[in-house]
Design a protein around this nucleic acid. Sequence first.
RNA 1: CGGGGUAUAGCUCAGUCUGGUAGAGCGUUGCGUUUGGGACGCAAAAGUCGGGGGUUCGAAUCCCUCUACCCCGACCA
Length: 565
Amino acid sequence: MRLSQFHLATVKEVPADAEIASHRLMLRAGMIRKLASGLYTWSPLGLRVLRKVENIVREEMDRAGAIEMLMPSVQPKELWEETGRWEKFGGQLLKIKDRKGQEFCYGPTHEEVVTDFARNELKSYKQLPVNFYQIQTKFRDEIRPRFGVMRAREFLMKDAYSFHLSQDSLAETYAAMYQAYVRIFTRLGLTFRAVQADTGAIGGNASHEFQVLADSGEDAIAFSDGSDYAANLEKAEALAPATERPAPAAALQRVDTPTQKTIGDIAGFLKVSPRQCVKTLLVRGRDGLVALCLRGDHEVNEVKAGKLAELPGESVLASEEEILAATGTRPGFIGPVGLSASIPVIVDRDAAALADFVCGGNADRTHCTGANWERDARITRVADLRNVVEGDLSPDGKGTLHIARGIEVGHVFQLGTKYAEALGATVVDETGTPQVMTMGCYGIGVSRIVAAAIEQRHDEAGILWPEAMAPWRVAVCVINPKNSPAVGAAGEALYQALLQRGVEAVLDDRGLRAGSMFADMELIGIPHRVVVSERGLAAGTLEYRAREESENRPLSQDELFALLG
RNA sequence: CGGGGUAUAGCUCAGUCUGGUAGAGCGUUGCGUUUGGGACGCAAAAGUCGGGGGUUCGAAUCCCUCUACCCCGACCA
């Protein structure tokens, strides 16, 4: 590509509210322009990068045996009513009406459509297993779109759906997809982790997220330094402490705590560690309120809590009125000591190992010290209720856990029969008996990957693309060709030679000053730069610089070709 | 959904409190000088001050209203 024939539109200034590096740099490089909240136009430059990602994803999906297709982005309400998701999906579902008043949604995902396709197309076990995928635009009406294409409302996604008659077959395809994802993110040149993920309300047996590691990531992930264990924070199990609960040593006392409501207040006021306090959360159970007790320095894990048999499937905190009615006091003073017998007390493993602890006194302005389980407070059940923290033992017993931030760019999921059941997607087995198919689904956020890569790889000057994602591999910058026809010709010749060797090159023939060219090529992250100048011509060398290096290297043309492979 | 903020030239923003001829930087166009890290000079084009309504002799500025966009929060006692 000759830049004089391209639309490169870098800018120096960027809105003050573009907060994260990838958003700022994508705007500055002119890769994207905002059309409306959460909606972005991909410029020719941005699209080149997006296509690089898309093509790698496509190649690896094909290699793994998936079959590409394309489904509509607009989907009829009736289909979504069959699975109950027209109502259940919530505000993220963008609903639209056609001129006849028929209702549709702009597809946030395609389980309904692909399962409808499958129930019409797939009739026999001989057609299974099969794995359909598409690369397509999705729309989710996010509560708060932000960070540019990182959390946009419209985005490009690869989604695959596999159909099986047996769990074994599903597990096989799942493993193949997992391996394909490893290949994809490795080829893209990203630092990533595959982490165990919660399967959520859908159930199923296995789910992994693929997280690109970056400090600005919205997700927290836990990984072991002694094994390959990695899980997102929602899923990571907190093991029971190794030491047994000490015997009670202190007597139960009530203390006046007029204004101290938070663990921080209490610990400071009583001069104890938050680790020696128990915090009590009242949540709505299936049958009245349920108390959850955790150590003061720990945080409740709502996913784990939601799975408790006593809860209705989700963890919702009780209102102040409900708490007042059930305990006679307000949030801030609740505790397990003397709590109404009708409230189950579910205690986190670490909180259960405390003795002589501090907790709310179930009366306004009152806390207890020297409290002990069994002697002063009931334990209905001990469970893992908390988020793991840095330094916890790894659940597999090997090493300790560390917490990192990640950007979720892929998710593989064993769905089971939920959608096939709802939509009646069956095939006949060897005996001629109809069987509901079992499904897997596998997503990759194609547009998000572009932003995630920038988060991971950028510097003051701009983007540092991995070679596989760069809009071009090499930039040929020609200095002052107008004053020296020989320089212009040499630049042109080098550009042609690179193209002939199959090296994706861009010729900066815009006639700009050197500084402007360099700044642009660095901003848009071209991995290799070659300068053709009178100086170099005289010396018989090309001036090469890698994007991630700060020094030039004089190279012959052969050396350059060797370096670029 | 709750709270807060913003909307002025193609872009990024001053100006609004205290009403009185519409501003800067960048970008764009032309001419000239330059030419190895975002050059300089001169000249020029460019705004229905988000929309609507009101107050006033007079509104970017004050009031009402609508719209769009952004930020924080949505319960961890």
